[in-house]
Nucleic acid binder design. Sequence first.
RNA 1: UCCCCUGUAGCUCAGUCGGUAGAGCGGGUGGCUGUUAACCACUAGGUCGGCAGUUCGAGUCUGUCCGGGGGAGCCA
Length: 463
Amino acid sequence: MNHTAIKSILTGDGTEHSQTVCGWIRTKRESKNVIFIELNDGTSLNTLQIVIDKDAQIISDEMNHRLLTGASVKAVGLVKPCQGASQSVELQAQSIDIIGEAPTDYPLQKKRHTFEFLREIPHLRIRTNTFGAVARVRNTLAQSIHDFFQQRGFLWIHTPIITGNDAEGAGSMFQVTTLNMDAPPRSGSGQIDYNQDFFGKKSLLTVSGQLQVENFACGMGHVYTFGPTFRAENSNTARHLSEYWMVEPEMAFCNLDGNRELAELFIKHLLSTVLNTCQEDMDFFDKWISNGLIDSLQKVLSSPFVHLPYTDAISELEKSGEDFEYKPVWGSDLQAEHERFLTEKVVKGPVAVTDYPKDIKAFYMKQNDDNKTVRAMDILVPRLGEIIGGSQREDNFDKLKARMQEMNMDMDEYQWYLDLRRYGTIPHSGFGLGFDRLVQYVTGMQNIRDVIPFPRTPKSMIL
RNA sequence: UCCCCUGUAGCUCAGUCGGUAGAGCGGGUGGCUGUUAACCACUAGGUCGGCAGUUCGAGUCUGUCCGGGGGAGCCA
């Protein structure tokens, strides 16, 4: 069907000309002589007002009754300056065709719905203002992630979804199997015999592409992963999904300082891209979802990212006199309330906290000479807290091996990882960014389930 | 996983002390009007999440199960 995007009509110069548009009816208002239809086709947050002059006999009474909210229609007519106050242009209809009717039990009405209700109809919620805006911003962010890395010569590496490795021990994993779950084959000792499973071993869905992408960094230089990730944690919060998308760059010949610099450039690139290319949608979020949103993003954009070692951060928290629910103690991880306090009250802007105690961080992080801390970094931003977590990786074979043994890891499973340090080891660093949390942060949406098309959470997988 | 809140019309919600179901929007009919969440009048629409219990009587109280939300933990 040859038709024009509503977005291009709304942003046109307003000179009178003929156009064909296709979309879904958001609402209809009727007067004695004229019918107004607000049509949306997803290309823009805004609707195009279709004006139907009753005297022109374009539609019958019977057809008028079928022009209900939710119906899909094709309209041909003249684009003209609008006589009303709310729009710049409108379409004076010459013909209207109903493509698909929407009976009166169409669940979406023109008034506000709760996000909880819309979560139950993920296939239809995309036809609302908010979810359309989220989808467009999400798309822009994904594209700008690729742009950022591609401009800098990073290779996009497709790390596997199915893995045999429990990367960094980051919580429970989903198992992938073709074994008969009613009667799995068992070995003599009664254990499930994974030799008979599809891959001949126990296999799982990835919780991170980092360990595999490190292989590519140690051979290709600058690389990144961007893909789906899975966690079987029983987390029921507004910030957790069981299936989510993650971005993980990894750089060869790069220490923690370089890592921090890249993270700052990265965040600023993403924010400026969205603010520049999604103005309409961002204005919508600022007005209806989170007041002051744009201002808060612009502040991050214009602020230098302050570097604050963990030990100094703890001192700042201790001397603040703030009554925290959890007392800050050297050796314990920063609580969400501590992170927010550091970025919102102490630094009053984005901050990179580095060099955390080694016992609260993953085995692969590079050990500092003090033997107490590792070269880890978390980037914290106001309103959210942690947005990026990363580290310089341990590149010393002996130190890494010792740390892995100390943590009782299965050494046989990680010989390939140790090989990177055995043969031509290099300093390298990287970080991870939860893509959906980024979308949440940028849009101001309260619940992460509303920034991914089809959310998967414990006990919930609609569609 | 723990704590708290919640489930009533297609949607958003009200429902007092336990006494037998209400509003707005959406739909229908009529009126009015280049309207902007249009407006006015009338009208249709209900297994009050499921099961069990207390009671003469349960939307309301109790138990339990299921769903949803918020906070915490785990984390991205």
